[in-house]
Amino acid sequence: MNRIKLILNILLLIVMLLLMDPRSFYGLEFHEWAGLIIGLFFILHKALNWSWIKIVTVCFFKSSPNRARLNYVLDVLLLAGMVLMILSGIAIARTINFSWMNLGGSGMFWRVMHTSSSFITLALFGIHLGLHWKWVQLRFKFKKVAS
């Protein structure tokens, strides 16, 4: 299971980085399709960690350690960032027709929202990885653990 999580996380990171500049990798078409697919990957990532989410949600105000609370808040922010990113991406999509969704708002508003939310989310991803660095070290066996 951990191996699947690791591969999924690496994929998420690579795709996220490729999506940061729509002109970098096979143009806007790739950007828009990959942007939608990364949303599914993100949901899968959450589903794989569902037990942790459930425990911390139940015990958030009671017995959760501070670190778990910090991770939880960061995860909520990441979720909000991803939702905003995908929603604004849908609103300004050019190669996929989402006009039937009728999201309203000006193109400029959605574009600014898309840029800002993606930049902030990337920074949050970096912090998220930093807080889970031990887990990464364990997966890559950088660090020998007694247990």
């Binding site: 990171l13 143009g27 970096g126 930093g130």
Partner: peptide, 21 residues
């Protein structure tokens, strides 16, 4: 923007910023 080009310079910079965080 539908070109088949791959220019990863900006992606590299984004990666470095990400790594910095």
């Amino acid at each position: 923007r539908r070109g088949q080009s791959v220019r990863l310079v900006n992606v590299g910079w984004f990666f470095i910023v990400f790594a910095g965080f």
